Computed example of a mutant assay.
Amino acid sequence: MANQTAIRILIVEDEYLVALHLEDLLTEMGHRVLSSASRINEALHLARTCEIDFAVLDVNLSGTQSFTVAQVLRERGIPFVFATGYGSDGLIDGYHHETALRKPYEAGELAGAIARAFPSITL
């Protein structure tokens, strides 16, 4: 199902198959995955430099939490959603109000999170 406005998305996920599935879901929704990172340093670099509209952040990247990446995105005014097996219970102070998708999540949940981040455009 294609949308009228493609969102440029960064995926931060350390499990290859999960990242691949997420990329497929986003592409089917009509969005453009600009880049994907599986390590925190790579994710930080992309969050600082990549021209993106939205990001999906796995909370735990091989034992390192992605909250520093979320902070960079906040500073740039780029919306994001966390993806974690713990849902919102896996978020630290300062991030409890952010959207957290509990893995495994459905395509509709992901689409809803993106739509909430961009209420003024038609997805």
Rank of each mutant, 00 (worst) to 15 (best):
S35R: 10
Y95G: 00
R116E: 12
E23A: 15
E23M: 12
R74M: 07
L110M: 15
I121F: 02
H21Y: 09
E23G: 09
S88F: 00
A19N: 05
G94E: 03
L20N: 09
V18A: 12
E51P: 06
Y105L: 04
E23T: 10
V69A: 00
A83E: 01
S120P: 00
Y95L: 06
G108L: 09
I78M: 05
F67S: 04
V81F: 01
V69K: 02
I92C: 11
T49N: 13
S35E: 13
R32E: 15
E15Y: 10
Q4R: 11
G90E: 04
R32Y: 07
T99R: 09
S88W: 00
L73H: 03
A70K: 01
S66D: 03
S88D: 10
L91G: 04
T64G: 00
Q71G: 11
A37L: 03
I40D: 03
G77E: 03
F67M: 06
G30L: 07
R102C: 14
P104G: 09
Y105N: 00
V33Q: 04
P119R: 11
L57T: 01
F67L: 09
R102S: 11
V33K: 02
T64C: 05
A111R: 15
R32H: 15
V12S: 05
I52F: 04
M1G: 13
Y86C: 06
V72I: 14
S38F: 09
V69C: 02
I11D: 01
V72D: 01
G63Y: 09
R48E: 15
E75Q: 14
K103T: 02
R102E: 13
G112C: 08
A115G: 05
V69Y: 06
H31Y: 07
L22Q: 07
Y95S: 08
D14E: 07
L73I: 06
V56P: 00
D89A: 14
L57E: 03
Y95I: 08
A70V: 05
